[in-house]
Computed example of a mutant assay.
Amino acid sequence: METFVQAHEAAIRLGFFAGIFGAMALWELLAPRKALYTSKAVRWSNNLGLVVINTLLLRALFPAAAVGMAILASQQGWGLLNNVDVPAWLGIVTAMIVLDFAIWLQHIAVHAVPLLWRLHRVHHADLDFDVTTGLRFHPLEILLSMLIKFAVIALLGPPVLAVMLFEVVLNGMAMFNHGNVRLPAALDGALRKLVVTPDMHRVHHSTHIDEMNSNFGFNLSVWDRLFGTYRAQPRDGHERMTIGLTTYREPREASWLPGLLLIPFRHSSRQDGTQQDTSVHR
Rank of each mutant, 00 (worst) to 15 (best):
M1N: 11
E2T: 13
A10I: 12
A10W: 13
R13H: 09
L14D: 15
F17R: 10
F17M: 08
F17N: 09
G19R: 11
I20S: 06
F21P: 14
L29E: 15
L29S: 15
R33A: 15
Y37A: 13
Y37N: 11
S39G: 09
S39R: 04
V42H: 04
R43P: 01
G49A: 09
L50C: 07
I53Q: 02
N54F: 10
T55E: 12
P63C: 12
V67Y: 08
G68D: 06
M69W: 15
A70S: 06
I71C: 10
I71P: 07
S74E: 15
Q76M: 12
G77H: 01
W78Y: 10
W78S: 08
N82A: 03
P87D: 03
A88V: 15
A88S: 08
A95P: 10
I97L: 13
L99Y: 01
L105T: 08
L105I: 11
A109H: 00
H111R: 02
W117R: 03
W117K: 04
H120Q: 07
H123C: 04
A125K: 00
L127S: 09
L127D: 06
D128L: 01
D128T: 06
V131Y: 14
T132Q: 00
R136L: 03
I142A: 14
L143P: 00
L143N: 01
L144I: 14
F150T: 08
V152R: 05
G157S: 00
P158E: 12
P159K: 08
V160W: 05
A162P: 01
A162Q: 05
V163Q: 01
N171M: 15
G172Q: 03
G172K: 04
G172A: 09
M173F: 11
M173D: 12
M175N: 11
F176G: 14
H178M: 07
H178I: 10
G179Y: 04
N180K: 07
N180T: 12
L183G: 02
P184V: 05
L187C: 11
A190M: 06
K193G: 15
V195F: 15
T197V: 01
T197D: 02
T197P: 07
D199W: 09
R202I: 10
R202E: 07
V203K: 02
H205Q: 05
H205Y: 00
T207K: 01
I209N: 03
G217T: 02
G217E: 07
F218Y: 15
N219I: 12
W223D: 01
D224K: 10
R225W: 11
L226F: 14
F227R: 02
F227Y: 13
T229W: 03
T229G: 07
A232Y: 13
P234T: 10
R240C: 04
R240N: 11
T246D: 01
Y248K: 03
E250P: 05
S255V: 05
L257E: 00
L260C: 02
L260N: 00
L261S: 02
F265Y: 04
S269N: 07
S269E: 05
R270D: 04
Q271Y: 12
D272M: 08
D272C: 08
Q275T: 14
D277M: 08
S279Y: 03
H281F: 09
H281L: 09
